[in-house]
């Protein structure tokens, strides 16, 4: 019944036997104790569980842990680099892009996918890219600004580098 999986999560390799029906989000939360990834719905709409699998944003509630076998996973816990916040994390804080914080990890991970593809998105592009992430607190206004903040910061960093 149980299947062995090997995954790298936030740079660390793990190997576990999992029940095939275990969703990736449950594996992250219950087995690895990475509770920064949240579950907000059961129909793959709200995006609270968004993480990066092999660099792409996915809804970890709609992926079995066994499907992620052999993959590279990044969660909110892996975004900061040695204590230095990722520009998106910084952006959400600077621009007040969060209130209750529950949707925030998913929102940040989805934004990371966006900035990877489109380092300089317009407001419209940001809003479209976040259509798969619900926020009930902010009205999205400051989330858009947070992503813009990060985009600017990343482009500056790259210029320096």
């Amino acid at each position: 019944m149980a299947k062995k999986i090997q995954v790298t999560v936030n740079g660390k390799a793990y190997s576990h036997d999992v029940d095939p029906r275990t969703l990736l989000v449950q594996y992250l939360r219950d087995v690895l104790g990475l509770t920064g990834t949240h579950v907000g719905c059961d129909t793959s709409n709200c995006g609270a569980c968004t993480i990066l699998v092999d660099g792409q944003a996915v809804k970890s509630c709609t992926l079995l842990a066994v499907q992620a076998d052999g993959s590279e996973v990044k969660t909110i816990e892996g975004m900061a680099d040695n204590g230095t916040l990722h520009p998106l994390q910084e952006g959400f804080r600077e621009e007040h892009g969060l209130q209750c914080g529950f949707c925030t990890p998913g929102m940040i991970m989805a934004s990371a996918d966006l900035l990877e593809r489109n380092p300089n998105p317009t407001e419209h592009e940001i809003r479209e890219a976040l259509e798969g992430n619900f926020c009930r607190c902010t009205g999205y206004h400051n989330i858009v600004k947070s992503v813009q903040y990060a985009a600017k910061k990343i482009s500056k960093q790259e210029k320096v580098a």
């Binding site: 793959s44 792409q56 944003a57 996915v58 992926l63 996918d113 966006l114 798969g132």
Partner: peptide
């Protein structure tokens, strides 16, 4: 189709 995350998978 769907949203970014859905399109990715």
């Amino acid at each position: 189709i769907g949203d970014v995350q859905v399109r990715n998978k």
